[in-house]
């Protein structure tokens, strides 16, 4: 048995806690649905091919590249974008840390960096290993090298990398 749709498909996605009904072309990526249909332009398009991380969002709490996913594949999923992380009037701790540490310059990769960091910290809390994890069976400690490896899916051409490490470290304790 199959659910099928042709040129348009109705899909409901829970975006930042709110059910959003979409009637979309199945070709529409989650990224374009957010940006062009829902007006949530905080999520950025840097490469559209999963090669830069600027489009990172959390889906059911897990970070993914929203450019490499179709909106229709996310029926019922809970999506958190940068707009759901905090607002200008109420910056979340990690947003404040990025501001304080100057963890961005042009700002285009920043929402993706922040969403990625939130997902990454949860992965560490869940004791997921990385390439930097020497002892696969022990408890993971978020060393600088672990953090750098885990954030390597987010390019920053301004190269605010050291500042990004500082920002994430400054909140890792309270969020992880």
């Amino acid at each position: 048995m199959l659910i099928r749709g042709d040129l348009r498909l109705k899909t409901t996605i829970i975006v930042n806690g709110e059910a959003r009904a979409l009637d979309v072309d199945p070709r529409t990526t989650l990224l374009d649905a957010l940006r062009e249909r829902l007006g949530l332009t905080g999520t950025k398009k840097g490469c559209d091919h999963g090669q830069c991380g600027a489009c990172t969002v959390l889906v059911n709490g897990v970070r993914i590249n929203s450019c490499l996913s179709l909106a229709v594949m996310h029926e019922g999923d809970a999506v958190t974008t940068i707009e759901g992380v905090g607002s200008v009037d109420k910056l979340s701790a990690i947003q404040q840390a990025f501001l304080t540490e100057d963890a961005f310059q042009c700002g285009y990769c920043t929402p993706g960096q922040i969403c990625s960091a939130l997902g990454m910290l949860q992965e560490v809390a869940d004791n997921w290993p990385s390439q930097e994890t020497a002892d696969l069976t022990g408890r993971i400690r978020l060393s600088d090298d672990e953090l750098r490896e885990r954030m390597s899916g987010n390019l920053c051409r301004c190269s605010a990398y050291p500042q990004i490490v500082a920002a994430i470290k400054s909140v890792a304790g309270e969020l992880a």
Binding site: G50, T56, R63, I64, E123, P129, T133, L136, G153, N154
Partner: peptide
């Protein structure tokens, strides 16, 4: 197997 998987792509890609 774990080592090989975490050597590929990025955290975001591996999650998907």
């Amino acid at each position: 197997l774990t080592q090989a998987i975490v050597a590929g792509g990025s955290g975001q890609l591996r999650n998907k």
